[in-house]
Amino acid sequence: MFFVELILVLFAFLIALSIVWSTLQTGISPMMSSGKACQAMLASTSPPANGPLIDLGSGWGTLVVALAREYPHHQVIGYELSWFPWLVSIIRKYSLRLDNLTIYRKDFTKADLGNASVLFCYLFPGGMDALHKKLKRELFHEIRIVSNTFALPSCEPVNVTKLKDIYQTPVYVYHWRPCSTTTPSQLILAEECF
């Protein structure tokens, strides 16, 4: 009996250690999107364009699993650095048989987001800064971005939904348009891009 208890305590310690480690790496602990936030974010995707739906920092899989279930004919991708939330998401994926869902244990800033149709995020101010820099550097087509709680720096949302919760949590929707100076008709002023 003592051996089983020791194994459980050790397992709990390893889980806590992995979450603390990933929190120190990323600057924030893995957080679940509330049910209301998931619904508001899902409502912002219909109908999604061609290309995968990507959750940046998919945490425990709350939103990414909901997306995969809501859009079974679309590819859904999640990126999560924290080992244990990633493992929980993988278990949920296989137990629900979500063949359209892929979850990577990887930093989204090192991922190729070029073919995405919609980006989802529940990050933190530093993560939103990193996303904004990545978009300016690497994304050269229009895309929808849906963010729970935190705004994309220097960008004007096309819609902000305030949730009916104690914090009146905002869900921001952006239509990212990269700057282009190819022709005058394609010119988008810098203020609109960033």
Rank of each mutant, 00 (worst) to 15 (best):
I19S: 06
I19V: 12
S22L: 03
S22I: 03
T26C: 11
G27D: 03
G27F: 01
I28V: 10
S29I: 06
M31C: 13
M31R: 04
M32I: 03
S33P: 04
S34T: 15
G35T: 13
G35D: 07
G35C: 03
A37C: 08
C38G: 07
A40F: 02
A40E: 05
M41D: 11
L42D: 10
L42C: 08
L42P: 07
S46P: 02
P48F: 04
A49C: 01
N50W: 00
G51E: 00
P52G: 10
L53F: 06
D55M: 12
D55C: 12
S58R: 10
S58W: 12
G61V: 10
G61D: 07
V64I: 13
V65W: 00
L67R: 08
A68C: 08
R69D: 07
P72S: 05
I77E: 05
I77Q: 02
L81S: 13
W83S: 11
W83M: 12
F84M: 03
P85F: 03
L87A: 14
L87C: 10
V88S: 05
S89T: 15
I90T: 04
I91L: 12
R92I: 00
R92K: 09
K93M: 13
S95V: 06
L96K: 14
L96N: 15
R97D: 09
R97H: 14
R97M: 14
R97L: 12
L98Q: 11
N100T: 03
I103P: 09
I103M: 09
R105K: 15
K106G: 14
T109D: 15
D112G: 00
L113V: 07
N115C: 05
N115T: 12
V118N: 06
L119K: 02
P125E: 10
G127V: 07
G127P: 08
M128C: 11
L135I: 02
L135V: 02
L135N: 00
K136D: 05
K136C: 07
F140L: 05
F140R: 04
E142R: 13
E142C: 15
E142S: 14
I143F: 02
R144W: 02
R144D: 15
V146H: 13
T149Q: 06
T149H: 10
A151E: 14
A151F: 08
P153K: 08
C155L: 07
